[in-house]
Design a protein around this nucleic acid. Structure first.
Lengths: 123, 123
DNA sequence: TTGTTATGTAGGAAATTTCCTACATATAGT
DNA sequence: ACTATATGTAGGAAATTTCCTACATAACAA
């Protein structure tokens, strides 16, 4: 439910793989998801529970199967959390870019001096 | 270093708080960061180590202090990981929006029928 | 040199996570 | 009713994480 639950859920590679499968292949029954893992079916079931508690998947009972589907909404909280860092990141890049431009200017200046040293006229 | 390290590092509230402090207040020595936590200084030091291994902070030694600064670049991996889910999320919203539009159309149609029932002409 | 400050590391206790093998539950088919 | 299928839950072992209190290291200050 909370952002903390979402961060925690994403910390496990197995759970991220579950989300990826649901994204790429759509909703599936628990058993079919479990087949893809090098892990017992009950363990996959527990991972699904963690994802469900984080609101990242939802289940629909169809007969004796339970179809799990992706619920991407909570991931938008992560994106929002990321936003201020992205701004920081961009400022860093801009500063670097400015630095490189300055270096370029300096380089051009040296070129001019080189030309002058070789003669060409003036003094 | 890897995306896995980054996800793991972000799973802890204490570590996310460290990143927030470095973002909001800039680079700081380890001790000053530790003061803000309801936790022993060595524990904060270990959290900083996890962040450093994930490439999320870097340290600069200044005298006997070590200044930690935010390194936001690895967070961009998280953003990239998020992207396909964001697309999914938008499609979901678009579908919902279309559904609501359809409901609206149906509603308008009923209004027209209401008007006709009250008379107005035709039949 | 001697003492103080800033910080990391060692070692271990407690809590949590991960994963397993039974087992329970519920639905479908015969 | 009986059997097979799909799945969750219980209980526990092993691994990992978190946090602590010493202790080690290195730089500064007298």
């Amino acid at each position: 439910m909370t952002a903390d639950h979402v961060f925690t859920a994403l910390a496990s590679p197995a759970r991220r793989e579950l989300l990826r499968l649901l994204l790429d292949e759509g909703a599936q029954p628990a058993g079919r998801l479990a087949e893809r893992f090098d892990m017992s079916r009950p363990s996959v079931s527990e991972h699904l529970k963690v994802l469900k508690d984080a609101g990242l998947v939802a289940e629909t009972r169809r007969g004796r199967e339970r179809h799990y589907r992706l619920e991407a909404a909570p991931l938008m909280e992560i994106r929002d959390w990321l936003t201020p860092y992205e701004r920081f990141w961009r400022e860093r890049l801009a500063a670097l870019s400015a630095l490189l431009d300055d270096l370029d200017d300096l380089h051009d200046l040296n070129d001019v001096n080189d030309v002058n040293e070789r003669g060409e006229d003036d003094g």
